[in-house]
Design a protein around this nucleic acid. Sequence first.
DNA 1: TAATTTTATTGCATAAATCTATTACAATGA
DNA 2: TCATTGTAATAGATTTATGCAATAAAATTA
Lengths: 313, 313
Amino acid sequence: MTITQLKYVLAVAEHQNFTKAAETVFVTQPTLSMQIQKLEDELEAQIFDRSKKPIELTNIGHKIVNQARNIVNEANRIQDIVDQQKGFIGGEYKIGIIPTVMPTLLPMFLKTFTQKYPKVELRIEELNTSDIIKKLSDGHLDAAIAATPLMNDSLKERVLYYEPFVGYIPEIHSLSKKQYLETSDLDINDILILEDGHCYRESIFNLCKTSKRHAKENFQLKSGSFETLVKLSKEGLGMTLLPYLHTLDMTEDEKKRLRFFNEPSPAREISLIYHKSELKLQITTALYDLILSIIKGAIAFQDVKIISPLSKD
Amino acid sequence: MTITQLKYVLAVAEHQNFTKAAETVFVTQPTLSMQIQKLEDELEAQIFDRSKKPIELTNIGHKIVNQARNIVNEANRIQDIVDQQKGFIGGEYKIGIIPTVMPTLLPMFLKTFTQKYPKVELRIEELNTSDIIKKLSDGHLDAAIAATPLMNDSLKERVLYYEPFVGYIPEIHSLSKKQYLETSDLDINDILILEDGHCYRESIFNLCKTSKRHAKENFQLKSGSFETLVKLSKEGLGMTLLPYLHTLDMTEDEKKRLRFFNEPSPAREISLIYHKSELKLQITTALYDLILSIIKGAIAFQDVKIISPLSKD
DNA sequence: TAATTTTATTGCATAAATCTATTACAATGA
DNA sequence: TCATTGTAATAGATTTATGCAATAAAATTA
């Protein structure tokens, strides 16, 4: 049994296809087939059921794959240990960020990070929360930034900041006269919400007192941006809620239409998330510390009420 | 990096000597040297400090060795998983037993075990507690039987039985008239104790109310057997304490000199111990279940007071 | 300093891994 | 039914890795 063989097994298990798996591990299909056969012979157990199309894991195969992931993870960690001991911060580092955080947070830390850690090759990807969980779990991401808590046992979270929600109230709106908003002011049928995986949207639903989850809506907004929301709001289609950081680069005119909540303001918790195996922890910690030091200047709210991104049905 | 290389590293780390390490992994010394050099090149880190005699681990080497042990353990577990899934109970299984348990317990289960699990190749070794802990930790033993609790985080214990201590009181002894003993009757200076690692002896010391740990003794008894103790006791050199199972095959005459304790009787806890990594757990569990079913017929005491094998200085 | 022990180096044989080319097999659709 | 397609298995050639024996080099001990 070799670590290489285990990596091959993981690739096939993931793609359910020998040919595709072979590509991802940069060998030819016969090579991969033979190595997997050798491992199966050695263990005297079938890992894959090749009669099914696409290929499936056998009962025992599932357990072997889980253990293989374990071993490969632990093996990867050896280089981590060496890097850490040497104080070396480098190598490829893949990070996922949810769409509603990406445009505000990334510009704040990206330049500083790449300057401070030039040997790290950052690969940044915009992903929704469920994809992030998937990719962190199977090792396709080293870390991610998303709304938390995720209540996922195999992931670790370190809170970066609490981002309050701010109301954008068009001039003609009834709430326009109020200086500060209350949670009880909100009516789900009157708020424009971004369709965004199941993350930001869920938060708002949980926030509304009058929340009938499947309230009738005149229209559905998919893959929109906050910019669009604000424009629709201006057209009188309702108020909207924006995460605080999105309000910072608004025009002065627009800012006049913002209404903050009375404390404790509803807020979302944004965290750096990574697998509990803590691979590449040096880089993760470096990233965490950097973002934290930057965000402290941008967000300074006292008392917030965290809205969980998870629906509680 | 290969699993083989990691095994070579572990061997050198253990023996602090390339030549001896090579023997234990059944390759020549040059082969082993080269593989370790290759690994060091790949990791760009020195694992061993070859300038020291005997060879020492570098700082980073220590961490690499720990992680290597992890990986090799996890790798071994794959065959375990396959065996378990198939219900196969077999392979080499190394077990250590403390001297004061060996002669009474081993005969009770050995024959039945080898008959029930003919494919398991049992390797039994008499070891004292500290050697057992060492060998369980570094993987040279799969399980052990010893007095517990050991308070060792990397080991797991499953209690097999509680074995009460029984007094052997020579006829001329003052306690001879009593039907049952009390813990308070015991005087450390009057009891013959077996020198036995630091396990059985410590138990007795903790038991005596009058325990001055470094009480003067007229003589010291090393590596004796209970048989010797009983004979010395008969000579009038004092009473002695025997674990219950050792009293079962005494002659009727000798049994007349036995005095049990009033309940709760002082007792030692005997457990099956194994590494928390739970390698070969199927066999361990099979062994545990078997011993438990056998011992139930032999020991049936209600209320006992467990004497810890650890000194509490 | 010589003898001994231990690790590193060299050259060669063998085993293993990988590649290319091809075959085999099953599912799909004309 | 028979190409077509997608996919895994097999065969043979090639490259790479692993291992051994012999020996050199370094360190230790007598």
